[in-house]
């Protein structure tokens, strides 16, 4: 298990460096940063000055090395737009996004897994139909529309929840449901399919033949084997939620990291975009790593690979 963990960790670090190099290169290739910062009416001299000030005239590899060296130490430079250290700027926004992401994935898992298990125990029953309806609706409904409906109903009509902002926990309820509901259908269907397969497995029959009760058979013997793909999927969904919750963040005016990334791209705020890409990919890699380790713990056959 330890060898497996170390191997995966090494791979994760390698992937992180590759991602940072590729994202750094792509951003610098996507246009001359100095021209973009200087604006439309800038003279040659202005651009040259900016080039020198920000170091764009230096060799590319040198720029990357310096950026990476600083980034490893937590210094992502100054935001061109906010004129603030990027690290500070992101830390603030990231806490909002992280809170939302963790709440949303928890909401998705806590609804999807029990529903998937129930649906699998009684396939084609009423509960299975209801679960199917919920998941199809979740898949078909765009987040922005569902978010707006929530605001109309809970904020405007019943005045129960605040429609926007991120000051209290109550501000997070609706975004959590909207973002979580988006991830829920896939998790539920996967849980259901996995449980259906596993409940027919020979070893589940063995467990019953030993005299294990229904609950023990279901949770100890079946769910542990059925949940493996669900763990992998959840990690991907969680990574996606951190970087891709822009829609939900915009609707509820939650100023999170996704929203900041979207704004910063428009403003050619290179240090912020670079830092965000690196951080998003680090989280993505981290979640994948955690899910690999969780799965190796759940299913010993994975440890061999």
């Amino acid at each position: 298990m330890l060898a497996f963990a170390l191997k995966r960790l090494g791979l994760a670090v390698l992937v992180t460096f590759t991602v940072s190099a590729i994202s750094f290169s792509l951003l610098h290739l996507s246009g001359d940063p100095a021209t973009a910062i200087a604006g439309e009416n800038a003279t040659e001299a202005d651009i040259a000055a900016i080039n020198e000030q920000y170091g764009f005239d230096r060799p590319f590899a040198e720029q990357y090395a310096e950026w990476l060296w600083n980034a490893v130490q937590g210094d992502f430079g100054q935001s061109y737009y906010f004129k603030l250290p990027v690290a500070e700027l992101i830390a603030d926004r990231l806490s909002v996004t992280m809170t939302l992401g963790v709440c949303a994935i928890s909401f998705a898992l806590l609804t999807a897994v029990p529903l998937g298990v129930l649906a699998a125990i009684r396939p084609n029953s009423l509960i299975d139909r209801i679960a199917l309806f919920i998941s199809v609706a979740g898949q078909a409904m765009p987040s922005f529309w569902f978010g707006l409906i929530m605001i109309v109903v809970f904020s405007i009509k019943f005045r129960l929840l605040p429609p926007s902002g991120s000051e209290t926990w109550r501000h997070f309820i609706m975004p959590t449901i909207v973002l979580g509901y988006y991830a829920m259908p896939a998790i539920m269907r996967l849980t259901r399919a996995g449980m259906l397969e596993v409940l027919n497995a020979d070893y589940v029959r063995t467990a019953r033949a030993k005299g294990a009760g229904a609950g023990r058979v279901l949770f100890k013997h079946a769910l542990r084997n059925a949940i493996v793909p669900v763990v992998s999927l959840s990690a991907v969904q969680m990574g996606f939620m951190l970087g891709g919750s822009i829609v939900v963040e915009s609707i509820f005016a939650l100023h999170g990291a996704g929203y900041l990334a979207w704004e910063s791209i428009g403003r050619h705020d290179l240090p912020t975009v670079q830092a965000l890409i690196l951080i998003f990919s680090c989280f993505y890699i981290l979640f994948t790593l955690l899910s690999d380790l969780a799965n190796a713990w759940l299913d010993p056959r994975i440890r061999v690979g």
């Binding site: 029959r205 467990a207 033949a209 005299g211 009760g213 084997n225």
Partner: peptide, 23 residues
């Protein structure tokens, strides 16, 4: 019945490759 199964009467199945829980 559950109390009897595995205690007073036990069963061995046809397929040893899949009859044990892999986890």
């Amino acid at each position: 019945m559950q109390a009897l199964r595995g205690d007073r009467m036990a069963m061995i199945f046809q397929e040893p490759m899949t009859s044990l829980n892999p986890a």
